[in-house]
Each structure stands twice: as structure tokens, then as C-alpha cells.
Design a protein around this nucleic acid. Structure first.
Lengths: 153, 153
DNA sequence: CTAATTAGAGACTCTTTTGTCTTAAAATAA
DNA sequence: TTATTTTAAGACAAAAGAGTCTCTAATTAG
């Protein structure tokens, strides 16, 4: 798999937060229900993003988490790097340590190209891009649901 | 990681076999030493490729494994599919079951493009392509070695 | 035939990832 | 103050991936 499950859940969650008005805190419990992700597991993932500074949290009634920046300023790559780290964009496709321009493996050049296209995609797509597209076309972030249902309540 | 370790080892091993004359059997023990991969683990991986029909094996002295087709006819994608299966090229980036043209997630279109560029790279690169490049430029398939050392003996 | 060499098969362990659960700490409301 | 709601922290368990080990079966060499 390209991205870990944690990372995928993190993307779904931040994408959901990007549909919310900026100042509002959303409880993780509600997110976990809307997104059909285990509450405790999602909590753990979002704690990483809070530690990373991408989210801020607030305890107690009316608490929850929110993005620290507008969704248009957060790119997918930010979430991926925060959760999965840089390996996807730096590691050799044949697993050789120190593979690079200076000391490449036979696949290095081709893989570097492919990797760049992955990086570009993640770098050029913001949470808002996807949230707006999802809303306009009523797409889904869960197995069965759609965006309308996601935004309701 | 894009590819599992098993898959990476499988690629290194088949790439190594592609440097050998067609009829010759290479013992897995020797490959494991040349490639610095645990013998038993490599054996298990190559058994998959033998079952898959990409390799054939022969027991006893002068036995070993060899490619069943010329390296120029085996593409990287063949090895990847045999070991990691099709998930990389079919799965939704947000992990939603059944994500596709008909019922896409917000990331589907962009991810489909990126995925195509991964597929193209794997489909357009043969074992021989890499083996020849490695030999010409004396590249490496291990942390420290080079191709010259690989081919020696 | 016997010993040596090789792949095959499967049990087993270790590590990482994924997921669950419990308790603590912060904040609010009554 | 007390009960409630929320995140924080960390122990724990389950599953998957990675790696080891032993024994068997096939083949060859002597």
C-alpha cells in the first residue's frame, strides 16, 4: 500500500475538518462516527497531528479539534509527512541505503521520476480542493455515505 | 513503503538472474550471498515466483533457479504483481472499497493519474533494461557492492 | 548404494502496524 | 463542588509482515 492506514484515516479526518467553519471545534467522537473509524484509533492519529501543529485541540464540553490553518493552505503532503514520514518520497525503490544521484541503483532514475509525480500530486492538492470537489459532486468519504450526509448536523 | 520488502528482494533477485545466461541454474544460496539477503527468506520469496511460473527450479547439485523467459520479456510489474498482488494499482488512495469511476472518492481522479504513471513505469521497464544499465554503468544491487562484483565468479 | 547438494514445505519467532481499553487531566455546566 | 464532556497518555491485544530454523524430497557425484 502506498499510504499506511493511519495516514489514510488522517487524510479522511482532516478533509472532513476542512469542510467545517474555521473557528469551530469538532469532537473526535463525532468524526469517528461520521467517518466510520474506531474512536480510539482516530484519537491516537489526531494526537500526532496535534503534536505536529496541524491541529489544535480543546478539552471539555464544546471541545474537539480543528485545523490551525485554512484548508486551502494545507496540502495532502503535509498530512502524509506528519503521519508516514518522508520515506515514500526519499526511499530507494530497491531498498538500498544511500541510493541517490551519486550512488544510484539501476532503477533510481525511473523511480525518481515516478516519485516526483507522486510528490507533485500531493503537493498540488489542498484539503479544500478535495472538500470543495466532494461537496460539489456529492462524493463520499466512507463506504456507503455521501458528502451531504457528512455535512448534515 | 510502495513495495513490500519481499517484493523488493524479489526484484533484486530476478534482476540478478537476468544478468545470467538463459539456460543456467543459479543456486539460491549463492544469490542470497551476492545480494545480502537471508537465504531462507529469499528461498520463500523465490518459491512464490516459481509457483507463479516466472522461475523454474531444479534440485540437487548444479541445481538452482532460472528465469523461464528472457529478461527482456519480464517487466517489473510482473514481479510486483506476483509478490505484492494488484492492490497498489487498484486500491483507493483513501481506502474506500469500490472506489472507481462510478462511485469515486474526492481524490480518485488525481490518484488514478498518479497510479497510471506508476503502472507505466513498471510496465515499460524490463529486467534486462535494468540489468544492462547496471552493467554498463557499474551500479549496485546491494549496500556496498557494484555490478562487476555481482557478475564475478 | 551412499554422501552431498540443492529446492520445498511448514512450524516457529520477532517486529511493526492496527486496533482496543482504561485511567488521568482539563474544561464546562449546574 | 460535583457530574459531565472532552482530549491525553499509555498499557494491552490482535493481525500482518519479516525473518529463522528444521526436516523432507529430489538430484547428482563418487
Amino acid at each position: 500500500m502506498l499510504l499506511s492506514k493511519s495516514c489514510v484515516y488522517g487524510l479522511r479526518a482532516t478533509l472532513y475538518l476542512a469542510t467545517k467553519p474555521g473557528g469551530e471545534f469538532t469532537p473526535i467522537k463525532k468524526m469517528s462516527e461520521k467517518l466510520e473509524i474506531s474512536f480510539h484509533f482516530l484519537t491516537k492519529i489526531l494526537q500526532q497531528l496535534t503534536a505536529d501543529g496541524m491541529l489544535e485541540s480543546f478539552k471539555g464540553p464544546n471541545g474537539g479539534v480543528r485545523l490551525t490553518k485554512p484548508g486551502s493552505k494545507i496540502k495532502l503532503i503535509d498530512v502524509v509527512l506528519a503521519i508516514d514520514g518522508p520515506k515514500l518520497l526519499t526511499e530507494c525503490a530497491l531498498g538500498l541505503p544511500g541510493c541517490g544521484l551519486k550512488n544510484p541503483c539501476p532503477l533510481h532514475d525511473k523511480w525518481a521520476e515516478t516519485r516526483d509525480s507522486i510528490r507533485d500530486m500531493l503537493q498540488n492538492t489542498s484539503l479544500s480542493d478535495l472538500a470543495e470537489k466532494g461537496e460539489k459532486e456529492n462524493l463520499r468519504l466512507t463506504e456507503d455515505g455521501d458528502f451531504e450526509e457528512l455535512l448534515r448536523n
